[in-house]
Design a protein around this nucleic acid. Structure first.
Lengths: 338, 338
DNA sequence: CGCTAGCACTCCCGGGACGCGAGTGCCAGT
DNA sequence: ACTGGCACTCGCGTCCCGGGAGTGCTAGCG
């Protein structure tokens, strides 16, 4: 059905269209890719590709542009991932090297990704399901208000305000010790199980307050902390001002909605490979003419979180995929090392 | 020079132009604001206003639009701040009521502000210069890596990774106690002074490590934590797609730069009043055709931080100013109460 | 049978002409 | 000091038209 030459032609159409942003015709195609056949032959092949749905004409007597299906085939079978240049690799590692804490690392990652892909970057905060709790603290802030603080082995800090009315410093200290000994050293999942038993061991005097605190603690442990998502490189959208309605506007709207972002990154597979979702393949209606390139990043075997970019379907897939992959790997490695 | 009627006309031009987004002519002006004079008279007055630089014609034989100077006069002398509707006030308080912690509060504030002004909202994290340190903790995360944690009376948490190679748990505990007793209860400013003395009191064995930790701690205390800025309502820019080059693009670029945002909010005065910076008055070149409406928010007498919105110069100043003012007050009150 | 050269056809796009309408400035009159 | 009237300006939408890029088809060639 599609012989080698037709695939070559499709590949040429995609790359040309991506770089020129204009429908590409048979003649220019032959010239630019010095094919060994005549424009007429190319036209015949293009007619077939069009029948099969890989390319379309915006209007009669215009060149062809790839359809989503065409991009899909291109991504699946035709492209080879471009290795990053040495300069780019070096940029990545120096960029990440200076990170001082988790927040900073995520901020740097998103900037880095936006910069090398020149698209809008999305990075989800790491979820360390296997991370162990290292520390639990209760701090009196003022009067009846306190804060419950959790620290885990990845350096992540969680906090939640709690009501500590009616407890003196000794009470707080006791409660803290009880909770701390029960919970420190275990994973969030284990901790949830362990906590239910703690309440019974509390001195009667602390029961009521303890129950409140434990409830908050359970929420904190169970609540999915992965909800946090950071976005960067939004000004890159200005490159697509001509597609305002189809690209800029829907992307801006999507970026404001954490839920949408989660779904966009959502089905990135665990295979370590990069997931590409093209146009209508996106789980979010308005992003019909954009693509999402996403990947899981992880340290060791523990799946951590996802990151990716959003851009027009008409993007440079080989470079973008390579960049996302590289950044995901570097971040994973960085996390593993600390 | 400018009699009452001319001011009325300027006021009418501004409000009409803001709502219609089209240059406004003498005839429509007379009709819509049922002025007691004829279009010809209005034209004469407009000629004067134009000479004085308050309005211009985009081209001969078109209506007039306000200049930055015109908006300035309008804001300074002509408008009266629209009180918010009851529904809006109620929306504000219910919106803020559910905040669980500082992060959440800031997030809610930015969403709220974006929603009621329908512009891009900017909120700076509160800086509590008078807040007291409540707690200091050193946690071993893994092997040689630790975290230094500070909690202050406003519920803010700061953290910094530290190298704790060569210290056992007892050392850590000692160091923690020393630092904690020295510092807890004082303001960041005082703490900086106090810390310099602490090093001498440390047992010789802890000197080297202690110096490192104290250095980090000093950085943490001195470093301006107000750098953090949150942005929201970016999709509101889509309303101004027609002014892509002058409004959307520069704003998107400004939003990416924390420093620029700080400068934009920068000179909001302490007077509790709202600052309006119109067009060329902005300290950032590319924002020539946008205005910034900003205010300080504070609990009690302690100045906390700033918040505001960015939008086209052609915006509804009375409503926007009222909204920014109201939100700033509510947030301040909320912070004061906890 | 696959490829190619030639050719007629389609249709987008940019530029020029044109009329409409909103708006202006000016002047004479009240 | 204001107003009515009037000639003038100019942006904007519409239409028309020619050029050009690109196509599909067909006949011919190896």
């Amino acid at each position: 059905m599609l012989d080698e030459r037709k695939l070559d032609i499709l590949r040429a159409i995609v790359t040309d269209y991506v770089s020129s942003q204009e429908p590409v015709g048979s003649q220019t195609l032959v010239k630019r890719h010095n094919l060994k056949v005549s424009p007429a032959t190319v036209r015949n092949d293009m007619a077939v590709l069009e029948e099969e749905g890989y390319i379309i004409q915006p209007h009669t007597s215009a060149g062809r542009i790839p359809t989503d299906k065409g991009y899909r085939l291109f991504v699946d079978r035709l492209e080879q991932v471009k290795p990053l240049s040495l300069a780019e690799r070096r940029a990545i590692s120096t960029f990440m090297a200076g990170a001082v804490d988790l927040d900073d690392m995520v901020a740097r990652t998103v900037r880095l990704l936006a910069q090398i892909t020149r698209q809008v970057a999305i990075v989800q905060y790491p979820v360390l399901s296997k991370a162990r709790l290292r520390h639990l603290e209760i701090v009196r802030v003022a009067g009846d208000r306190g804060i419950l603080i959790l620290v885990n082995s990845s350096g992540r800090l969680d906090q939640r305000p709690i009501d500590i009315a009616g407890m003196d410093d000794q009470d707080l200290s006791d409660l803290r010790t009880k909770l701390s000994t029960a919970v420190v050293g275990s994973t969030p999942g284990q901790a949830i199980d362990l906590l239910t038993a703690v309440l019974d061991e509390l001195p009667a005097r602390l029961r009521a307050q303890g129950a409140v605190v434990i409830t908050v603690l359970l929420e904190l442990l169970a609540g999915d902390p992965s909800t946090r998502i950071v976005v960067g490189g939004v000004p890159n959208l200005t490159r697509f001002a001509d597609q305002f309605e189809t690209t800029v506007k829907p992307v801006l709207e999507a970026l404001e909605e954490q839920m949408v972002l989660l779904r966009l990154l959502g089905e990135a597979k665990n295979g370590g490979d990069v997931t590409v979702r093209i146009g209508h393949e996106n789980p979010y209606e308005p992003l019909q003419s954009t693509s999402v390139v996403a990947s899981i990043y992880s340290s060791d075997t523990d799946a951590l979180a996802k990151l990716g970019i959003v851009g027009p379907t008409r993007m440079d897939y080989p470079s973008t995929i390579a960049a996302v992959q590289a950044v995901a790997r570097y971040v994973g490695r960085y996390l593993a090392e600390g």
